[in-house]
Design a protein around this nucleic acid. Structure first.
Lengths: 202, 202
DNA sequence: GCAGAATGTGAGGGTGTCCTCATCTTTGTC
DNA sequence: GACAAAGATGAGGACACCCTCACATTCTGC
């Protein structure tokens, strides 16, 4: 970012620009989106956009980063709440997790739109992978709580595939009709549960 | 397509253009790819590219269509071979299916590259969905053979999520280190098997 | 209420790509 | 081998978008 806003007016403008970028990129895709269009939607001038971001791609990346941060913080909040509760079953945790991320996708339709089917830099892909990795690592810790004797390597790959599957299927589900999506999410829970029951004790 | 080639020379040129497009789009993405660059890689002139395709996006779509056809025909060939063999277990069929599609991804790296993280038209997304749907429908028939009493609606959603999961996780696996990918594929089989065993008889 | 810092503006320069078309080359047929 | 049809070529027109920068406006501390 070129300039970090200090005044309130500027902070709001930056927020408006990011929101506008979110909308435009979601609607028409990275290429078709023009910086002029984004400025217009943000009710500001093209010059202001370039006050904050050195170029179009930096604007897009900032937007993606914002989504990644939101996703990760959602997961952290969820875990905090869970560990505080008096040890529920792991299947309950899985269900809650899936529900929470499903809500995330539904509430923030731009997330899928900007993340999939856009030109994403290798750097950004790595950032996305890192978030999934971080989530998987935390998930592995939860698994360790329920099954301390399962070897670490086994836990690692299991956590990884569970996180990736949930992530991938939710991405698919967003595109379906609401009814079909609901059923997909239900079956996703079922699948993850039956897989994990081969590893974790009931 | 603007012109369908009748002479052999022309057919080969068209093939070269599609192959070049495959490479360039894979390497740099849809936007960054230029039609001039594609023509050069195909060892032909820009004019020839536009003899066959009305514009850049039509070229890209033709490329995607070629991949979809290849994927679907792979599945059909696989099923033909399977039904001819004397009724193996369903878990064997699942494993073979996953292996075959994994090879497809590995052998045709361009498939993932052009399909994910590119600007794909809604029309093309629908085409991709249609292929997955078609595969799911055939998978459902196979399930019907092993579990005739499971209600149709249940079979449908199960087939759908299995196909989507396999498709999604293989897309993820391609990006991993070979070792990690191998483990992911192995766990994918495990997951699908344990899910299906809640539906199909052993 | 004033100086100066911070912020905002938008017309236009520069760049690069898509695609056309007039012209040339190859292929097939009699 | 001559003629027509099919195929191939690539310089350049047209267009659209990114980004700059000189100037205007707003804010802040004194």
């Amino acid at each position: 970012m070129r300039r970090v806003p200090t005044q309130e007016r500027s902070r709001q403008r930056l927020e408006r620009i990011l929101d506008a970028a979110d909308q435009i990129f979601s609607e028409v895709g990275y290429d078709a989106a023009t910086t002029e269009q984004i400025a217009e939607r943000a009710e500001t001038s093209i010059g202001s956009v370039y006050q904050f971001f050195p170029n179009k791609s930096a604007l897009f990346e900032a937007l993606c980063q914002r989504y990644l941060e939101r996703a990760q913080s959602l997961f952290e909040r969820l875990l905090e709440r869970t560990t505080l509760a008096d040890s529920p079953s792991w299947s309950k945790i899985v269900d809650d997790m899936i529900d929470a991320f499903w809500s995330f996708h539904v509430d923030q339709p731009g997330f899928r739109a900007v993340w999939v089917h856009q030109n994403i830099s290798a750097q950004l892909i790595a950032a996305g992978d890192a978030v999934n990795q971080a989530i998987a690592t935390r998930a592995e810790e939860v698994m360790a709580f329920f099954a301390p004797d399962v070897p670490r390597s086994k836990r690692r790959i299991a956590a990884s595939i569970v996180v990736e599957t949930i992530s991938a299927i939710l991405f698919v589900a967003v595109r379906r009709e609401p009814d079909e999506a609901k059923r997909l999410v239900a079956e996703l829970k079922q699948m993850v549960r039956s897989y994990l029951s081969t590893i974790l004790p009931a």
